[in-house]
Design a protein around this nucleic acid. Structure first.
Lengths: 327, 327
DNA sequence: CCGATTCACTGATCCGTTTCAGTGAAACGC
DNA sequence: GCGTTTCACTGAAACGGATCAGTGAATCGG
């Protein structure tokens, strides 16, 4: 850890006979002559000068970091999303600060506030509790882009919302079409407030389709969701189908079914939600979202917003059904 | 984005009648009276004061951020690792800056250097090319903890190495025991330098056991690895077993096998490496590493090293075989 | 040819902390 | 009772850039 001290802007100034201010401008290509820019660039290269991001952040108020607050990184699909967003942000010369709310609204609040205190230039959030009050304050002090569900308080800079009504309808209609009448719905653990649009819609649609449903919450982890599924599947009057609100939860159902010696779809049908790559392997019929499109949209919107280009936008993602063999 | 300006240390100083320096010390519990600490804390709470991490970083030289440079985040197991390390670092009040080398040595170099320029307090790296020269420079200017393979140049602050020799031996002996003689080995794409210890060991062990092997590289993604596997499996004289150097690659083999109408293990045996949660579901026999242990060790070591407690350590992880049904 | 612009650059200040080198007073040793 | 420590705190100088209000020279319009 020898720490050969890095060059400062002042040394570059000295080397070129310019003022530090001129060097600062030159390096960012502002109001200096073409020739000076070249001269400065060369001197900087020779000295191995690279502007210190910390000092730059202090002076300019911008850190180049975007917070990404995930609902639950136990969910493999959300992991893919996070990886994609991280990569995409790096391509735009930003760093992603990825945090995991782990399905807990309180933790979500804490982390969101910490991210703000950490001075991120913007925040992408996949809200656990879109109705929480603090979003208003947060959206007031930095650009927030919501993914999945729109935030109910405070105006976000932009939103990439999923048409969950359509997704739910697709899934339930498909189950009904395949002859299922009694279906267990497994949703990720949620805040106690039960007015989540998607959940409300599940109940409404089930009624419309004459489906007998039962909603249970489960954590995203394989072991947890398998435990919950196992309890349901081992009942004598078990439902004929399980509709899981994330593929990861569906994987848990597969696990539980395997342990109970039940076959999918022979003994129980499974419907997923999200379409993680592994689902193709397992033959899980699921509702697909355009992951790449979501990544690109979210990144584009948060970067634009953090640059002050504040065209407030709402992008709606449409689902499509990936019909495989699990139903 | 109203940006109600946050309180500064000067305002707290004013409110308490102390100097900014005293407030700074008080908040960190250094050389001030107990009573003053209490008074400062209360004033800070009232003003909603929270030290600006940027200014703090500039003055102290410490950012509280740890870089995590993954070999390839297309690999699901590495995703789990990254999620675990991120969570664990947050518990220790650090932020993880997660980057993905995507199996590319050049990219690994670029990102590692960028991470240093970003002023992370330490770096955890799962090296793609442990023999690269730049590690020496890097390890000179910040504490580096290597996971998986030890870095061959420059002394890292610490290492959490996998006993890959043992893992490889276990896997190959098991395959041999199950009657396989011709096995295809699929390893993640690597730098052209072929002196990777694990790879060398595979060849040596295969010879010792009288195994006829053939080594091919594949990217970690499902589609890519399936493509490579498909090419091998569709040959008339296909091997009887595939040994994949990561579970994600093994998943690709499953996909290829399914597409070709081959059954696992009936037509082809598959052996994985890493033991991702999904492997249990698929019945993939694989070599398991203690993920939690690795996470804890890496985080503990990098945090200690970044705090200057520089007890240089090398922790060796032992594998164990998860015998399931794929062989 | 003279006043107004534009251009290329400078000097100073600021961003909000930490930290170093004190400083005065109290406590201590003998 | 006098020098030495310790204690609790202060003032000022970093840290390394960005930015604002100039400034002198060249360019421009008429």
């Amino acid at each position: 850890m020898a720490q050969r001290k890095r060059a400062t802007i002042r040394e570059v100034a000295q080397a070129t006979g310019l003022s530090p201010a001129a060097v600062s401008y030159a390096l960012r290509g502002m109001q200096v002559s073409e020739e000076t820019i070249l001269r400065v660039r060369q001197a900087a290269a020779e000295l191995g000068y690279e502007a210190d991001p910390i000092a730059r952040a202090l002076a300019s108020g911008r850190t180049g970091m975007i917070g990404l607050l995930c609902g639950s990184l136990e969910d493999l699909w959300q992991q893919s999303l996070a990886v994609g967003i991280g990569r995409s942000l790096r391509e735009k010369d930003r760093y992603a600060l990825i945090l995991d709310a782990a399905g807990d609204p309180a933790r979500e609040r804490t982390l969101a506030l910490q991210l703000r205190d950490q001075r991120v230039d913007g925040l992408i959030v996949q809200p656990v509790d879109p109705a929480a009050r603090f979003w208003a304050d947060l959206a007031d002090s930095l650009p927030v882009v919501a993914i999945g569900d729109a935030l109910q308080n405070g105006h976000t800079a932009a939103e990439v919302v999923f048409d969950n009504r359509r997704g739910v309808t697709m899934a339930l209609e498909y189950l009904r079409e395949k002859g299922h009448r009694r279906v267990a719905v497994l949703t990720p653990t949620r805040p106690s407030t039960p007015d989540r649009p998607a959940d409300v819609h599940v109940i409404a649609e089930a009624e419309r389709l004459g489906l007998d449903i039962e909603v249970t919450t489960a954590r995203q982890g394989l072991a947890d969701s398998a435990g919950v599924a196992s309890e349901i599947l081992s009942r004598a009057d078990r439902p004929s189908a399980m509709f899981c609100f994330s593929d990861s939860i569906a994987y848990g159902v597969y696990k539980a079914a395997a342990e109970l010696g039940l076959s999918v779809p022979g003994d129980v049908a499974v419907m997923g939600y999200d379409d993680h790559p592994m689902s193709e392997l397992l033959g899980l019929t699921t509702v697909n979202w355009d992951l790449d499109g979501i990544v690109r949209a979210a990144v584009r919107l948060v970067v634009a917003a953090s640059d002050g280009k504040t065209r407030r936008r709402r992008i709606v993602q449409a689902p499509d059904l990936r019909e495989r063999v699990s139903v």
